[in-house]
Structures are given as C-alpha cells and as structure tokens.
Design a protein around this nucleic acid. Structure first.
Length: 292
DNA sequence: AACCAGGAAACCT
DNA sequence: AGGTTTCCTGGTT
C-alpha cells in the first residue's frame, strides 16, 4: 500500500514533512541551516507564519523560505490558480529547482529513497492514480507543468498583485479596473473613494488609499475627470522594489536580479503595449495597458 | 541615491 | 526567435 503520496498543501504537512521541505530548500538554495528553529512545527503552523516570523527564526534565510512556502501554498492546490491557470506558481518550482513538482513532493515524503529520480511527470514516483484518498495531484498541475512555458514578468507581477495579503507590502494596485477588485478590498476602497471624492481628488488616477503626496495634482490636468477610467485602470505601484526584484529573481532562478534589471524588463513592455507609465508618471508606478 | 529611458549584446529556452 | 538579462550612458526626482 502506498502510504506516501505527498500532501498537496503545505497546510497538511506533518512536522516531518516540514523538516524535509526545509532541508530540501536549504540544500537547493544553499541557505544557512535553520537547525532546530522550525522544529515541531506542522504545516499548519508554518503556513500561518508571517515573513517576519520566518526571519526571526532564520535571520539569513527566512525570507527565502517564506517566499518558497508561498509558492507551494499557492501553486499546489487544485484549482488554486485564480488568474493564470496556464502558468501557475507551483510548477514553476520545477524549473527553479530542477525538479517536477511531483518529484519535489515525492522528495519530501520519500527523501530516504534517493534512487527515485524523476524521469517525466507522467511517471514520477508517487503518482499512482487510483490510490488512497484525497491526496493525488490534480491533472491540471501536471499538464501545466508539462507545458513548461516560462512565466513572463507581467504575469508574475499580476500574480503578486493578486495576493495583496502576501505581497501587498511589496506591490499593490493603485487603481485596479472596477468590477474585478480583489476580494478583500472592495469596501475599503469604496470608503477611501468617498474620502477621496470628498477631497475632490482624482481617485481614479491616484489610487484609493494612502497616497499622500501622490494625491491628485491631476484633477485639473486630467480631462475633467470624466469617468473614462480606461487610462486610469490597471495602475499599480511597486512599494518595495528590492523585494519584488528578489522574488522575481527567485522565480527565475536569477540570484543577481535587482530592480534595475527588472525595471529594464518592464520597459521592454512599453514597445509591446503590455505595460506603460501612467499618464502622469510617478516613481515606481506602472500601468497595465490591457488590465484584465 | 534611487529611479527612469532606451541602446546594445548576451543569454536562455 | 522571443523574452528576457546584463551592462551601460545619460537624464530626472
């Protein structure tokens, strides 16, 4: 009886699974050993930890571990890719770590079994179709990872924007298209919008929260603030350029990535009509030309 | 000092 | 060949 299919979600990991994941990630990224810093933690506790808590336990590698756990959390669940089903986060682990997700998961569960190198996704160890219970890997995972398309930077940015809870400190919408705001923000945004309106500021161009000096100098510049949100939607701001670059570097396995290079890649999108600078250019603020 | 713009070439898949 | 990555020069905030 195959007792060893990997729990799909990190939440389901046992303390043993967690330790093995830590060892593996440490090894892959040559992180300083965390030692016993995460001992006895089950996946559930691990998933509940903030990046700060990761850093407290592992000052040198905690942020990377947290970022990777997030990839696992977001990419390995069935139907867990709200935006880009073709290119979810999870399988990217495969290219980043030179392993298929199945192999990775299988490693976690069976890393005492070094001979089981993954040959292909279909035949990877641990994927016995009609086996045990809820623990089998969704087909969509396998398919998408097989498609093997490298993720594009603009997709990556949208993925981060999609998860304000995790990445809102690094990158956030200033003005997302109406009708498709994130789950968390609708009420908050409306409140802020009313506030902005009461101040007669352009909430469309300047965002709805916290804008301080960014707040609209454009009321009088912008074409009479007509509700032509077309050139005001899809605007986002990179709040922490170094962190966004770091995450992008992790994803692409480019340790030398920095914001200088990332922003050059963003600028390549200008010509292609994927991203541009908003009408009123602001530092670290960009705009998707075709916000979804 | 950090960000921005864009040319040029290398790199990777 | 497309999509970056890397490096660079020069300009702006």
């Amino acid at each position: 009886m195959s007792t060893s299919l990997a729990p799909t979600y990190p939440v389901d990991w046992s303390p043993g699974n967690v330790q093995k994941w830590l060892l593996w990630t440490e090894h892959q990224y040559r992180l300083p050993p965390v030692g016993k810093a995460f001992q006895e933690l089950a996946g559930k506790e691990l998933c509940a930890m903030s990046e700060e808590q990761f850093r407290q336990r592992s000052p040198l590698g905690g942020d990377v571990l947290h970022a990777h756990l997030d990839i696992w959390k977001s990419g390995f669940g069935p139907g867990g890719f709200p935006l880009l089903k073709q290119q979810p986060l999870g399988p990217r682990l495969e290219s980043t770590l030179n392993l298929s997700p199945i192999a990775a998961a299988s490693w976690i569960l069976t890393h005492s079994q070094p001979g089981s190198r993954p040959q292909s996704f279909g035949t990877a160890p641990g994927r016995s179709k009609g086996s045990t219970s809820e623990e089998s890997w969704p087909d969509s995972e396998v398919d998408s990872s097989c498609s093997g398309q490298p993720i594009h930077l603009w997709q990556f940015l949208k993925e981060l924007l999609l998860k304000p809870h995790s990445y809102g400190r690094f990158i956030r919408w200033l003005n997302k298209e109406k009708g498709e705001r994130g789950a968390q923000g609708a009420g908050q945004e409306q409140r802020a919008r009313r506030k902005a309106q009461s101040r007669e500021t352009c909430h469309r161009c300047c965002g709805s929260r916290d804008l301080g000096r960014l707040r609209c100098k454009m009321d009088w510049i912008h074409p009479s603030n007509k509700p032509s949100a077309s050139n005001c939607s899809g605007i986002f701001k990179i709040e922490d350029s170094a962190q966004v670059a770091r995450l992008w570097g992790i994803r692409k396995n480019r340790p030398a990535m920095n914001y200088d290079k990332l922003s050059r890649s963003i600028r390549q999108y200008y010509k292609k009509g994927i991203i541009r600078k908003p009408d009123i250019s602001q530092r670290l603020v960009y705009q998707f030309v075709h916000p979804i």
